[in-house]
Design a protein around this nucleic acid. Structure first.
Lengths: 204, 204, 204, 204
DNA sequence: CATGAATGAGGATTCATTCAT
DNA sequence: TATGAATGAATCCTCATTCAT
């Protein structure tokens, strides 16, 4: 009678430990043995749960992304106006970088390693594309309803938002946090709100 | 009489080639032999001009940083008002990411994977620190003169600007460019300008 | 259940093989792959048991030194008179060079070329210092009790003995053995005995 | 009209500088560029005067050995009795290690590298053989004339003398000098004299 | 299932030697 | 003759992955 274990659960437990190690040492700087040691299991055991090193990263990234996607829709649908939805979305992403801070490091690691593996053309545009799509639609709607300054190019603006999201993550990764997170979040939101929203309409 | 070579010039030529290789293959994914081959020289020759792999990057980084610092002051000093200076500074950095695109991409790549051994004399925090200092001073001045919305926390705002700078670079690294650069630059500048500047004062 | 290996025993087996390779090819001339091949294992496996090349030697050196130190005290304490102890000590060291011939040869080889980086924890001077200390004390005692010719300077004489020890080893390394070892040992002992001991007292 | 230089003289000047570098860094630890730099010439120039790195060492060794051989005969022939000749010879060699101290380091380096180069059988016995031959003859003569203790095996004793010579050199190389050289020399000579010479005969 | 011992491909770096000038 | 720029063979060491137990 084989020992019965919840493979899924153990995989999650392992990758969760791995995440903290990745966070500390960076993905390329982390050895499989580091992970095994931190998880208190044998090196070989890792391969019972994951195909290879990248697979651990991928697994944890997927968790991150799934949660992100699911929560995103929820966050948007609370509000009704396009501009409100848009701000809610942005606020959500900023909050998400705080809540899933450890994963954000992985997020960067994931892209870097993915880029390195595939000589050319590993395009993340598909993943980002989804996000930009949502943003663009909201911007368009907001511009049509007069809530958002029509002077903005929707594609450029949505790309900017995604870039800001990435930037906040990586800058924190590089320098650590120097400013209080919630203050930082509010600052960012204010800047975007002031910069984008047509005041008369919002207030009216 | 020996062959006479302009060592400085050749070092620059090599590191310049190396940079494009780093861009294509990523820093960790680039072998010294790749660089040598691309530069049309022997592997050993690299070590006549550079201490090690990181030294090649450091060399280009210095060039980048020197140019950045020098141009920055120039860009700022054209204008007189704090808010104008601030916008000029932001505009300059955005333009700089376009002009030095390869360098930016490679640094992001390097720093996001180096983490573990970030002590080799790449003055990342020094560069960011300097930048934030300048930003904060301008924001403060602008707030005192009433040009910039006093509701903003200067430290948070300057960190946000630097984050946006990083974000633009890394997002481009991940996805390539999907939006016209100049349009993108203008969009970012507009958002920041609208979001931060007190209109009455500016127009007055 | 993993393969269980007596790491200590395997390390000794490997280093033991390595020693013979060092002896044959010289320390600098021995490649890690030579050792691996001779030991019938993979190159990487060496690093499971030893930090680096020098560590293999260090391991054998420790074994040698431990055995040397332990046996030394034993050899001395059999006799009671200082002069007898001294001769026993010298006799012991001469015998030791025969018994541990390979080790001796390799150390000479190592130390005569290492010079530049003699800081890695080979306690050469410590070993010599200890030895000279013991020798000097015995000589002094012997001189006080009238067994040893008081004309000798104790420090110089003990340094001479250690030099002879080194000389016997290195000469054998260079030329191989041309004279029967036991005869050689006896000759050396006689010379020293005759040269140092005050006859009247010994015989009396 | 070519620049006329005394090739021999320049070679000697170079190898003389090289010697001091070898002494300091050891032969394997000395780079050709180190020598060139110390000699104030270009790296390539070394190859105008020497076939390769080993050739520089060999050159300097030859100088040493030639001087040694020539002076040796001189030293011996001053005295007439075998035992006096023998002691003079030993005294000469001891003095020689003091006078040619720098070369002694090279002497060891030379043998080590020679051993490393030739997988097997690089036998120094020919060189040492000459020395041992002389020693053995003197010992035999001394024993026949009753000056030297007939209990000694001449071959073993002469090998011992050569070993002591080597030992003094290498021990000094390892540990530096701790005892005054002249005192050390006298001590060694006394030990040998007392140990070997039949007193009655010498004095008689 | 679990393990960790074994592996070897892979890469950075060194340095004696060559050779164009 | 003198040079030093260029070279690439050679070697150490790392670490993801495999597999016998």
């Amino acid at each position: 009678m084989p020992k019965i274990v919840d493979k899924k659960a153990k995989a999650r437990a392992i990758s969760s430990v791995a995440l903290t190690v990745f966070r500390k040492r960076g993905y390329p700087g982390t050895r499989m043995s580091d992970i095994a040691e931190a998880a208190g299991i044998g090196k070989g055991t890792l391969y019972e749960y994951f195909k290879d090193k990248a697979d651990i990263l991928r697994f944890e990234f997927d968790r991150y992304f799934e949660h992100f996607s699911a929560s995103l829709l929820e966050a948007i649908n609370k509000d009704s106006r396009p501009s409100e939805k848009l701000l809610a979305l942005i606020d959500f992403t900023l909050g998400h970088t705080i809540e899933w801070e450890d994963h954000c490091a992985v997020y960067m690691d994931y892209f870097s390693s993915a880029r390195a593996d595939q000589d050319e053309g590993f395009s993340l545009s598909c993943m980002y594309g989804q996000m930009k799509e949502i943003l663009m639609n909201l911007i368009h709607e907001g511009q049509e309803s007069g809530e958002i300054d029509p002077a903005f190019n929707a594609a450029a603006l949505s790309e900017l938002f995604v870039s800001i999201y990435d930037g906040i993550i990586i800058h924190r990764l590089f320098t650590g946090q120097t400013v209080d997170r919630e203050l930082f979040r509010k600052t960012a939101l204010n800047l975007i709100q002031n910069g984008m929203i047509v005041q008369g309409v919002m207030k009216g």
